[in-house]
Design a protein around this nucleic acid. Structure first.
Length: 496
DNA sequence: ATCCGGGGCA
DNA sequence: TGCCCCGGAT
C-alpha cells in the first residue's frame, strides 16, 4: 500500500495500528515506512508512506537504493523548448491537437532519459507526445523572468503579487535544474505555479510532469490536459513501484520468516508492566489523572528512588483541591528533592483548574489544553494513563518520547537519530510495539517505563527486558555489552 | 517555513 | 475544462 504520510502519522496512529493488527491476524508479516521516493530514483522530494504485508509472515527487506538521485535536468533536460499555451499542430488528427499531437524530439542524453524513451514504437523515436503547457499571463511572464529556484513569492515586486502575500509565500516555485522537483500533486491540474520550468518562462508541460513522476514516454494520458495532470499527480511513481516490487520479489525468494509479531510484543510488554512491582515512573499507575499530572509536573526526570520518594507525597493528592489544601506539605516535601519551584507551579495549575470549575477526570484533552497552564506533554501522558472518551474522535497520542523511541528503535535495530526522525520512523516504531487494541494501553505504559529504567541510554539491562528474546539490540549487542561492564548493566536507576 | 488542497465561475 | 482565487496542517 502507498499513501501520504499523514495517513499513518496522526496523533493516535489508530488506522495504522489497526491495519497491522488485522493483517498479522490473517497471517501476514507487516512492514511500514515513510520513504523519500527520491531514494528510488524519482526526481522529486516526494515522501510517501508504504506498507508491505507478505503472506506466511515472510520478512520484508526494504530496497536500499543505489544512492543516486535523479535531478530535474536528468529527468526533463532533453525535452524540446516550448512556449506557454503551445499546442502541437502536427498531429495525426488536426482537430484533436492534444490527444494526437507531438513535437519533434532529438535524443535522450542521461541514463534516466534513455529509460524514459525505452519501449517507444519505431515510428515515434523522433516524437514526444503530450508536451503541452498552459498559456502564461503577461504579469506572470514578467514575474517568472525575475525568478530563480530560490525566489519566494514575497520577493517579487508588489505589483506582481496578485495574491495575498501574508498567506502565500510559496505560491510560485521555479524548479532547480540540479535539484529535485517538489512533489507533483494533483493540484497541478488547477495551476502550475509550483512547477515553473527551470529556464523557460512557463509552467511545466504534461510530459514534463509525467517524466518527473517517472512515467515512460510511451505512456499516454486520456482526456484533456487537466485530466492528464490529475492522473499524473495522483499516481504512485512507477519507478517507486518498481523499486518496491523488486524488493518484494527478493524477499519472497529469500523467504526468511519474521521473528516477531506486534501482537506478541505488545502482550509481553503489557504483562511485564502489570507485574512490575515498583516503577521508575510511579505516576504511570496514578489512581487519578490529576495524580499523573502532579507526578509528571513535579517529579519528571528524577532518578527512580528519588521519584519514588516524591511519589509518596503526591500520591495522596487525588484532585486539585486536595493539592491546594496540602500546599505547605507540598512545598516542604519537594524542596529537598530539588523541586521546590515545581510546588508553586503545581499550586498555580491547581488553582487555575479549580477556578475554571473543571474536573480533570471528566475534562477533555482540549479543555485542559485551553487553560494554558499545563505542558502538552503532561496532558498527553495523563490521558495515556487514563484515556478519555474519545469525544473528539481521537484516542490519545502515541507518545514518541526519547525513552519510548529508544526502546522501539533498539528493538527494530534502527539507529534512529533522536531529533530528526522521532516524528516519523520513531513514531512508527513505537506504534508497532504498542500494537492494536488488545494490550495497547499497558504496552504503551510499559514502553515508557522500560525506556526510563531497563532500557537505559548507556548499557541497557537486557536480561530484565521482556522483549529481549526478539529485540535486535539485545540479540546482537545488548548481552555482549553487559558482559563487558556488569556494573553498568546492573544499574537500574534510570537516569535519563 | 514547508508541504499540500479546494471552491467558484465563464 | 481551464483559470482564478483563497487557504490549512504540521
Amino acid at each position: 500500500m502507498e499513501n501520504v504520510p499523514d495517513m499513518a502519522l496522526d496523533r493516535g496512529m489508530w488506522i495504522l495500528r489497526t491495519m497491522v493488527d488485522e493483517l498479522e491476524e490473517l497471517g501476514y508479516s507487516v512492514a511500514e515506512r515513510v520513504m523519500s521516493t527520491s531514494d528510488l530514483g524519482v526526481p522529486q522530494f516526494r515522501q510517501r508512506f508504504f506498507l508491505v504485508a507478505l503472506r506466511d509472515r515472510v520478512a520484508f527487506r526494504w530496497p536500499t537504493g543505489d544512492g543516486v538521485r535523479t535531478s530535474v535536468r536528468n529527468a526533463i533536460g532533453d525535452l524540446p523548448q516550448l512556449e506557454g499555451g503551445w499546442r502541437p499542430r502536427n498531429g495525426d488528427d488536426p482537430d484533436d491537437p492534444v490527444a494526437s499531437g507531438w513535437a519533434e524530439y532529438a535524443e535522450p542524453v542521461s541514463t534516466f532519459q534513455k529509460r524514459m524513451r525505452a519501449g517507444l514504437p519505431a515510428e515515434h523515436q523522433r516524437r514526444v507526445y503530450d508536451h503541452v503547457t498552459r498559456p502564461v499571463r503577461d504579469d506572470d511572464a514578467e514575474a517568472f523572468a525575475l525568478m530563480d529556484s530560490s525566489t519566494r513569492y514575497s520577493d517579487l515586486p508588489e505589483e506582481l503579487q496578485r495574491y495575498r502575500d501574508d498567506i502565500f509565500d510559496d505560491k510560485y516555485k521555479r524548479l532547480d535544474w540540479d535539484g529535485l522537483s517538489r512533489t507533483i500533486v494533483a493540484h497541478i491540474a488547477k495551476d502550475g505555479y509550483w512547477y515553473i520550468h527551470p529556464d523557460q518562462p512557463r509552467t511545466i508541460s504534461v510530459r514534463e510532469a509525467a517524466r518527473l513522476q517517472t512515467f515512460p514516454d510511451h505512456v499516454r494520458f486520456s482526456g484533456p490536459p487537466t485530466s492528464a495532470f490529475r492522473q499524473i499527480g495522483n499516481a504512485v511513481p512507477p519507478m517507486a513501484g518498481e523499486g518496491l516490487g523488486a524488493a518484494i520479489l527478493d524477499s519472497l525468494l529469500t523467504a526468511e520468516r519474521e521473528g516477531f509479531t506486534t501482537a506478541e510484543a505488545s502482550r509481553l510488554l503489557a504483562r511485564w508492566f502489570r507485574s512490575r512491582e515498583s516503577l521508575a515512573i510511579p505516576w504511570l499507575r496514578g489512581a487519578t489523572r490529576w495524580q499523573t499530572v502532579v507526578g509528571e509536573t513535579a517529579l519528571s526526570r528524577l532518578p527512580a528512588p528519588v521519584a519514588q520518594l516524591g511519589w509518596r507525597l503526591v500520591a495522596a493528592m487525588p484532585n486539585p483541591n486536595s493539592t491546594i489544601l496540602a500546599s505547605d506539605a507540598l512545598r516542604l516535601g519537594l524542596a529537598p528533592l530539588g523541586r521546590g519551584d515545581r510546588a508553586n507551579d503545581l499550586l498555580d495549575i491547581a488553582s487555575t483548574i479549580e477556578t475554571a470549575g473543571i474536573d480533570p477526570e471528566d475534562a477533555t484533552e482540549a479543555e485542559l489544553r485551553a487553560l494554558g497552564v499545563l505542558a502538552p506533554a503532561v496532558i498527553d501522558l495523563a490521558y495515556r494513563v487514563h484515556p478519555g472518551l474519545a469525544d473528539d474522535g481521537s484516542d490519545g497520542a502515541v507518545l514518541a518520547t526519547v525513552a519510548t523511541v529508544r526502546v522501539a528503535s533498539r528493538y527494530f535495530g534502527e539507529s534512529v537519530d533522536e531529533n530528526r526522525n522521532r516524528l516519523t520512523e520513531g513514531r512508527l516504531a513505537v506504534a508497532r510495539l504498542i500494537g492494536g487494541e488488545d494490550h495497547s494501553h499497558d504496552a504503551h505504559l510499559a514502553l515508557l517505563e522500560l525506556g526510563n529504567s531497563v532500557c537505559s541510554p548507556g548499557v541497557p539491562a537486557c536480561a530484565q527486558c521482556p522483549l529481549s528474546g526478539s529485540c535486535a539490540f539485545a540479540t546482537t549487542r545488548g548481552f555482549q555489552l553487559q558482559l563487558l561492564d556488569p556494573a553498568d548493566a546492573a544499574d537500574d536507576v534510570g537516569i535519563v
